[in-house]
Design a protein around this nucleic acid. Structure first.
Lengths: 356, 356
DNA sequence: CACATAACTTGCTATGTAGCAGCAACTAAT
DNA sequence: ATTAGTTGCTGCTACATAGCAAGTTATGTG
């Protein structure tokens, strides 16, 4: 029993165990008493207690006694949270959308005196180093990096935004992509369009899937049959927007409206259509998604879905803060509505219809 | 002498003083010996030494002895550097330019296994909190926030990029804005232009001043007299690019080329000129500065100055790392050349000239 | 000369004693 | 009833011993 392990280690473990078993609550017996109980000397107990105090397990009140520290393991508060965006994501923080989210998070966090740092390196070592400096992380989740996020969750509380994680245990704040694109379709129909094309993003995440699903449901809702030839599979990039436009131009009959799964593709499409001599919106209407800055700046300005960025920041931070503070949270998953901003890239349909 | 201060504190101070006075070097006498020398008991010395070890002043080698820890105060290596950009800057990290710099820094830092975090909150408390987590900072400097940067320099090494600081003690990595815009003017002249306008940015920093000075020198170099009416004072924003175009349209004679102090203004100008029925580049040539992503994406694609972003990242990180490692650095201030990327927004002058 | 042994040093653990100061509660004196 | 003293608890500091393991050095023997 005594072999090589020092007695004071034994005493420490004994005390820890007693605390765990709730045999010891609040105030400890006096050091001398304890020494007698455990059959070791007073000084040994002192050393053990001293160690436990530096470990944070116990705390002392001079001339009163020694007490159990019930504050939970309590990750030392950094008052700093991280915003994670995988570096391999297209554009990454360069993307206007994500940087706006960062700014919004920073603003809302400052109100509670939290600092925010952005990082994107998913190298395990460097990631852990960064995680040790933050109390929690808000991460933009895409399936490809979900393992990274699960890894992070081992160390700190995590809230995901953009997509919810497959692991539904991680709280999420997303936007209602589905109904947003239903609204886009509704709007196009209200302008008399019925030949409505769609450029998908990647189908590797809920975002892409739900925008496409919203498009499909919007058509059904407006009694329009889905024509697969009017769906182009893009990848969110400006380039793929150009390719999508090229594709639509090969069709016998051009759609009168194209809804794009994001603004970059919409911009690419506008560029190519115009290059080929088409007028926007007279010849073809374009709708985007995200409402990045340039959307309002180009001519014609782009009709698009505006993400409620401030709301995303507000909710995700308040959930994260609750997790950090060890509170229980009511709503694990929040889907915020996103609505259409009508600008100049859509016109009423000229052919056939004058419906609605 | 003994009043209330514990003896072991006395012993600690004595040892520290002895180290400072170089009376104690490398190995300490044995604890028992020390006790005899100082006239206190062995256990008291033990306690003192133990404390000094936890303080990091001494270190022990079991069964060998106790030694003085000569590692310099040595800021505990976080292997993390910060990238700072004032939150109140127009666009901030949303600006494609700065986010590209961040990505480039992250890439070069990863090679030395450094993490990079971006932060922009300049609130003193939160700033210090963040600074305590990094070994050094690369900061985009503008005069308005120079006090913040000087403040940071109190805690960690700092390298500024973009502008050099008024305090020339801070190492800087900037681009040669002056010669870059000289190159722009040269190019415009080589296309036969002689009525060359300029849209300034803000004159609150070297960047803005030097780009304008480069324009002026370029004109002189090409034997063109400066016409102040062809200079519009902008503020780098897209909106001010529009206003600049409006201004030029009020002139009796439009310049045939407008050089803009950044791409955003160039984009705004292009938009407005086109809206007013002008063709780019047939009716007016436009040159930007920065080479942001959209510069290549718009129609016509924008001729602009490309910042050597990777070079900036490489140099600023290597300087910062040298500072962190306590090495002396040779070159305090580096100005990197930036060159013109010729695209589609400039055409040969149609009137009068066919020079060169 | 080589090698084993003994003597010594180092830090580590453990235990004992002792006086101090601050506090609370009880008790005795005013 | 208030005050003053006593007692006993707490943790804190200080000092003294003593055995242990592990490395170092001096010594002695083949």
């Amino acid at each position: 029993m005594s072999d090589t392990t020092p007695k004071y280690i034994f005493v420490e473990n004994h005390i820890k165990a007693a605390i765990k078993k709730k045999e010891l609550v609040d105030k400890l017996p006096g050091e001398r008493t304890l020494a007698a109980q455990l059959g070791v000397s007073y000084m040994t107990v002192r050393k053990s207690v001293e160690n436990l105090v530096t470990q944070g397990v116990l705390y002392k009140v001079p001339t009163k006694g020694t007490y159990v520290n019930y504050e939970k393991p309590q990750r030392s508060k950094n008052y700093t949270i991280g915003y994670f965006l995988d570096a391999t994501m297209i554009a990454g923080i360069s993307s206007p959308y994500y940087s706006l989210i960062f700014d919004a998070i920073e603003k809302v966090a400052a109100k509670d005196d939290y600092s925010v740092v952005y990082f994107s390196d998913n190298n395990p070592d460097r990631l852990n180093r960064t995680l040790s400096k933050v109390d929690g992380v808000i991460a933009t989740c895409i399936p490809r990096i979900e393992h990274v996020i699960l890894e992070m969750k081992q160390s700190v509380p995590v809230v995901v935004i953009e997509n919810s994680a497959a692991d539904k245990v991680i709280p999420s704040v997303i936007i209602d992509n589905f109904n947003a694109d239903v609204e886009s379709v509704d709007y196009a129909c209200s302008l008399g369009h019925s030949k409505i094309g769609f450029m998908t993003g990647l189908d590797d995440s809920d975002v892409g899937k739900n925008r496409y699903a919203g498009y499909q449901y919007g058509l059904r809702k407006n009694k329009i049959e889905l024509d697969k030839s009017l769906v182009f599979n893009g990848n969110y990039s400006y380039q793929s927007g150009i390719e999508g436009a090229e594709y639509f131009l090969t069709l016998d009959e051009l759609p009168t409206t194209v809804i794009c799964a994001n603004d970059s593709m919409a911009l690419g499409a506008i560029r190519h259509f115009r290059q080929e001599g088409l007028n926007i919106p007279e010849d073809i209407s374009i709708i985007g998604f995200d409402n990045i800055d340039v959307a309002a700046q180009i001519v014609p300005s782009l009709t698009t879905i505006a993400s409620p960025i401030d709301e995303i920041a507000k909710h995700s931070f308040s959930i994260l803060k609750a997790l950090i503070d060890g509170k229980t949270i009511e709503q694990q998953h929040i889907a915020l509505p996103a609505h259409l901003i009508i600008r100049d890239s859509c016109a009423t349909a000229k052919n056939k219809s004058a419906a609605a």
